[in-house]
Design a protein around this nucleic acid. Structure first.
Lengths: 241, 241
DNA sequence: CGCTCTGTTGAAGAGGCTCAATATGGGTGG
DNA sequence: CCACCCATATTGAGCCTCTTCAACAGAGCG
């Protein structure tokens, strides 16, 4: 697989094959693979390709044919959709250990969403044929992916339900509470995205986000600090909104 | 199908084990199993339990512990969620061949949604332990389920995007167009649910659905007929809304 | 045959969007 | 290291879509 003779110009976006011994960067860090034996991980790693993208680069777009699984090994990826009317909606953000590409991989040949590097990012790609082979050979991988999928499905449905049943204020409060739960350092956390993206994720506009956060601040629930940091002063109050 | 010796009181909701030879009602009709050999399907069927529910009965509810996959063999099931604020949202409707229960099965022990029989319904249930065994034994089943999951995930994300980016009128028009695509007999189709449920599915209210359908009718795009039948007169016009 | 749930229609009000003007800040190049 | 610049964020005002509440009509089911 890995050609040792690799030259820079053979590498789109600094694309490189792995050589054994450079395993650590991706396969071993994703839950779907890291329960395997070392030798099995090496085997998978041997079929993987590493590709780097610079900030802002598009990794795939809707309509692209693709047949690879993308595992984030470094950086951050924005997954978003464009509606028929052309509006953008942020679906989720991938951090190292997350993967994407599953739709094109298991169902259809083309993507419906867009993947964009939010910062300089490295992914490893596993081709559909290789992955299928491994799934048949090591069925426990499938169980891991099924677990991941069912969690994602649940989250997606929960998100839909929220958007249709709760008002913006409530959705925002819930989002803040969840971030506190996942990311809190003390009683502060850092927004993982711009407020523009947050608006798109929550199904509203940047203006409304801005206003609602100010209201929360006026009401003493939170305090906004520089560099996207938010201190939560009254979590319970927030959740009663 | 019921064992021949079945007595009413041995069967909760007319619950019965399968005997070989009565295979046809469920395992063989779902895409996730029907690619298997006859003998393999028989093997799975032997572990399945058939349960019937009367119209309106709840099959599972949020918070229930469950460890079974439910495959619809007859009838129709409404899957819905309740938001934190208590509002109901219709997630999807299952018809024979569809399955549910995956979240409790692969991720957590409890359901987040509700499943209710819309008409008299029969499901077959496969226990988690049995299913896991089959997945490891026949890895191709996992691939089928992965395909199904990734399709559902895509649909769910598409639904979220629509709800947040399109207005009600557009969502309704798209829904009608999709139903035409899937269910049309001539240029008519039958709504698969009440307008109340449709409202909940599309994230709006029955009043709005009623009004928008009247508008579409006034504009000559559709014609509403008795028994939930809708004739589409101008599909293109509808999609330009 | 009546009762209850679903659907329809009207009117009023609210929540959030749009548009526009201005402020801010972090990234970049000099 | 500083100044500049452009995307992001903020704030205000008006408006529009959709929800809400209420009253009534109709349909399906026991």
């Amino acid at each position: 697989m890995p050609s040792k003779e690799m030259h820079v110009h053979e590498c789109n976006h600094h694309e490189c094959n792995y050589t054994s011994g450079t395993r650590n960067s991706c396969v071993s860090l994703v839950p779907i693979f890291n329960h395997l034996e070392e030798t099995q991980m090496d085997e998978i790693m041997a079929t993987a390709r590493s590709v780097s993208y610079k900030k802002g680069e598009i990794i795939y777009r809707a309509g692209d044919k693709s047949d690879s699984l993308y595992i984030v090994s470094k950086g951050k990826i924005r997954i978003y959709r464009l509606s028929d009317s052309g509006k953008e909606q942020l679906v989720r953000i991938l951090i190292p250990g997350d993967f994407t590409g599953e739709y094109a991989l298991f169902s259809k040949a083309t993507h419906e969403s867009y993947a964009e590097a939010m910062v300089d990012t490295t992914v490893c790609m596993i081709k559909q044929a290789d992955l299928h082979e491994f799934l048949l050979k090591y069925p426990s991988i499938s169980l891991k992916i099924l677990t991941e999928f069912s969690t994602r499905l649940e989250q997606s449905e929960r998100q839909t339900t929220r958007v249709v049943t709760e008002k913006v204020e409530t959705r925002l409060a819930m989002f803040l509470a969840e971030e506190m739960d996942r990311e809190a350092q003390g009683n502060e956390f850092v927004l993982p995205m711009s407020k523009k993206d947050l608006a798109s994720y929550l199904g509203t506009t940047p203006e409304t986000i801005s206003r609602k956060l100010s209201e929360f601040e006026d009401q003493g629930y939170i305090k906004q600090k520089p560099r996207k940091r938010i201190e939560v002063l009254d979590l319970d109050g927030l959740l009663l909104v």
